[in-house]
Design a protein around this nucleic acid. Sequence first.
DNA 1: ACCTGAACACCGTTCAAGT
DNA 2: ACCTGAACACCGTTCAAGT
Lengths: 224, 224
Amino acid sequence: MAIRTRTTAPRGDALSRQRIVEAAVELLDAEGEAGLTFRALSARLKTGPGAIYWHVANKDELLLAATDAVLATTGAGPDPRASPEETIRGVALGLFDAIDEHPWLAVQLSRSPWQSMTLRLFDRVGQQVQALGVPAAARFTSASALLIYILGAARQNAANARTQRPGADRTAILERESATWEGLDATEYPFLHDVAGQLRDHDDRAQFLAGVDLILAGIRAVAP
Amino acid sequence: MAIRTRTTAPRGDALSRQRIVEAAVELLDAEGEAGLTFRALSARLKTGPGAIYWHVANKDELLLAATDAVLATTGAGPDPRASPEETIRGVALGLFDAIDEHPWLAVQLSRSPWQSMTLRLFDRVGQQVQALGVPAAARFTSASALLIYILGAARQNAANARTQRPGADRTAILERESATWEGLDATEYPFLHDVAGQLRDHDDRAQFLAGVDLILAGIRAVAP
DNA sequence: ACCTGAACACCGTTCAAGT
DNA sequence: ACCTGAACACCGTTCAAGT
């Protein structure tokens, strides 16, 4: 096969939808949602803002494409040997970690529900709920409760991470927050006051999974 | 007591933090988050944008104040005769309805977790979890799972409502979505394909409460 | 103390003009 | 077909100047 000439081969610096989306993801990861700007993006791609509009309709479409691109690489294929519970935990952890790595994902995922990506997730969770032996009438409720919790927790975690400076000392933050809760008026915040100590050795991931297990227990209680 | 003179009494059109926040809430309710602009707000208040900055530090603080103002009027006081489950359902429904009425609330509530308002909610839910007899070690997990679900579901509902044009025919939308799901490839989306029919007479509020009950069942399963 | 409104440094998006 | 970059209509925020 002949070597392509320089002029017809796609050069590394040629603009393309793919290169734009890749650069957008990099920008989102590095600077957060506020960092994704058509000007910043075009500067990084060494072109003008107008050039991007040739390949992408608008910012919404760009964000959607970035979300799809990241989620496409995430989540290992389902393991047929895994139990339904394990598969659900796998999906949940995959999303949790993806959002932990790309906090801007959370906002995108819950912005347009019933979107292709969310529907795919809903179906995957629903399949496992069915495999659990949940009767047909209770499947919709079970699957939607699971997905809502998973997305909600991952989003909350992303919001927490964004509040803190990146690279901040996690232990120190929890220590400080725990002390704050302890200092709260026990009459006004009896629960927080009581539970302040548990915050000190809090593990977000473990907490997240415990919540998933709690809902799974509820589902099992309805469909034994 | 003497009648106050016109000049010292706060005239109806005098600028004040309270009037600003009230106008902000009106604007948010009518036009959504994008509608809250310092220019639109100052036009409504018949003043310049700079005047607002005398009473409010910036847009973030304004959004926070608007959120507090709306949530302060929501949620009936806790009924001491109600069971813990009933109280939790009451808190959940109160939030759900508030967010249904003011969809912009959802984004605000999960933007800054560990904020005064969210902490108060967390404490209220935690108190009821304790009243349920959940052992100390499981209380944190139970309360946070509940709150994450409640906020997540309310947000999802708000996002759904925002996608649809206000005043759109709810039945028609569900009918159309149900038909879409039915038309999906049964190999790729087996669950959605199966469950499409249930979507037709779907009640968001009932669905939401069913999810709360599911988590309550899980909590009870852990702490009988 | 409080308000005014022009001005600054940004946005997303468009579009005539180029190649 | 694809790119350029100035221009438009917006933002949030600041600030000298007024009362």
